[in-house]
Amino acid sequence: MFARLDRYLIRSFLGMFAGLTVLAMALLLLERLIRITEIVSGSGSAFASASLLVANLIPHYLNLALPGAFLISMILTIDRLSRSGEIVALMAAGVSLYRIVLPFVQFSLVLAAASLLISGFLQPLSRYSYREIVYNLQHQSVLSVFQEQKFVQYDNRIIWTDSVLPGGRLGQTFILESEPDGARTLLTGGSGKLREIRAGEWEITLLGGAGASYRDADPPEEYDRIEYGELSWPVIAETGQYRARGGDERELFLPELLAKAGAAMPGDIAPAVAAATFHDRTSRAALLLAMPLIAIILGLNLGRVARSSGVVLGILFLLGVQKVLEYTLVQTSEGVIPPWMGFWPIVVVVAAASIFLFRRLAEGGIITNRPRIAARPGTDYASALAGKPRT
């Protein structure tokens, strides 16, 4: 019976969970589609490139969507089972809330492991792959860098152009290049033309313009001013293979973050940042284990008056925890507090509060001292519910 009950409860919730996950991911991806369109606009295989970029964004947005979809779908499922009287019937038959929540807790264990896999391994790998694809697209076609009336930063250059016309013809153009030693070169032109000199190497010809070379500390009167009728200037040259993975903490696997956190020598990624990122990912997975209890608390409705506040409270809870974790990540990354002291007390408080409130609900009620519905020995509830005398 209980195995059948577990399958029924999970099946009641699984369809809604999958639907909400897909919906949340679709909404989150919408804000990236405009950026992806701009990136692939100059590519010869725009659809294939866009598909690869979207595929590499899926782990990131899936990990964002899972907690919200999990909690809201459970609240809605528990609320529907309560309103239909199924939970009352189960409790009257002797099935406690502890037993009802068990399959959801088991599912949360699987989901927490999946969250660790996604955030700890798939997401760093897909983030690196996304950046590599963008890099290759920008080097294959410089037209993807020149976008009409938009400031675009590429490596050490900031580029703006009024218009991009067929044949590589440009309108008014602005280019600012910053060197590692602090020197800067500013060039402007009334019009220009973009052409590929050799495979992977481009140059722009600016017409009727002016410019200057300077350093930030130089006063304006010491700038080296430039005036020209025509100036050819290299814009993007092929720089070879993309860098190795690990440019920042978001590209590192969980074991790599742990190794960086214990590193004695400072590197590109500070040990405090690596430790904060490690604890952020693991604590978010741990919080999933408390969500079945929270869903029962917010979704259960055994009274005569239907409640609709559970979903709203669930959304507010998710937003509140998200903001607290974001603030904690900033503080721990800067070394203000140790990472374990920043993240895990949040997990402990949420878990302790959910366990306490769930026990009060299962054994009597959170606010009132209403006795729980429990089976009495020797009672044939099936006959009683059917209105038949016990034989």
Score class of each variant (00 low, 15 high):
residue 240 G to D: 00
residue 360 R to D: 05
residue 307 R to T: 15
residue 261 A to I: 05
residue 189 G to M: 07
residue 205 T to E: 09
residue 91 M to C: 10
residue 124 P to S: 12
residue 276 A to E: 03
residue 234 P to M: 08
residue 340 W to V: 14
residue 25 M to K: 06
residue 205 T to L: 10
residue 281 R to L: 03
residue 151 F to W: 13
residue 107 F to V: 15
residue 304 R to W: 01
residue 335 G to N: 10
residue 357 L to N: 04
residue 316 L to W: 07
residue 213 S to N: 10
residue 82 S to K: 05
residue 288 L to W: 02
residue 44 G to D: 12
residue 193 K to L: 12
residue 33 L to M: 15
residue 212 A to M: 06
residue 7 R to W: 15
residue 168 G to N: 08
residue 48 A to Q: 11
residue 118 I to G: 02
residue 30 L to Y: 06
residue 152 V to M: 14
residue 186 L to G: 03
residue 192 G to A: 13
residue 317 F to V: 07
residue 297 I to A: 13
residue 296 I to V: 15
residue 284 R to S: 03
residue 149 Q to C: 12
residue 46 A to S: 12
residue 347 V to H: 04
residue 23 L to V: 12
residue 240 G to C: 09
residue 46 A to N: 01
residue 33 L to E: 07
residue 92 A to P: 03
residue 54 V to M: 11
residue 22 V to K: 04
residue 291 M to V: 03
residue 210 A to G: 02
residue 36 I to F: 15
residue 367 I to K: 04
residue 230 E to G: 06
residue 172 Q to S: 13
residue 307 R to Y: 06
residue 322 Q to Y: 13
residue 238 E to A: 14
residue 355 I to E: 03
residue 10 I to M: 03
residue 202 W to E: 04
residue 39 I to Y: 07
residue 295 A to D: 03
residue 130 Y to N: 11
residue 91 M to V: 10
residue 111 L to A: 15
residue 321 V to L: 05
residue 43 S to I: 02
residue 376 R to D: 00
residue 196 E to H: 10
residue 39 I to W: 04
residue 156 N to Y: 08
residue 285 A to D: 07
residue 169 R to H: 09
residue 290 A to W: 00
residue 142 V to Y: 08
residue 6 D to C: 11
residue 364 G to L: 11
residue 221 E to N: 10
residue 122 L to A: 14
residue 289 L to T: 02
residue 244 A to N: 10
residue 344 W to G: 02
residue 13 F to H: 15
residue 191 S to F: 07
residue 106 Q to W: 10
residue 371 P to K: 09
residue 276 A to Q: 00
residue 262 G to R: 15
residue 191 S to A: 12
residue 188 T to L: 14
residue 124 P to H: 13
residue 61 Y to D: 04
residue 350 V to L: 05
residue 266 P to F: 12
residue 187 L to W: 01
residue 89 A to W: 01
residue 301 N to F: 05
residue 279 H to V: 08
residue 181 D to A: 13
residue 138 Q to I: 01
residue 102 L to H: 10
residue 368 T to H: 11
residue 37 T to N: 13
residue 166 P to N: 09
residue 122 L to T: 09
residue 162 D to M: 02
residue 197 I to W: 00
residue 366 I to W: 07
residue 151 F to C: 11
residue 68 G to S: 08
residue 145 V to K: 08
residue 240 G to P: 05
residue 146 F to P: 02
residue 244 A to I: 10
residue 275 A to K: 01
residue 159 I to E: 04
residue 82 S to G: 14
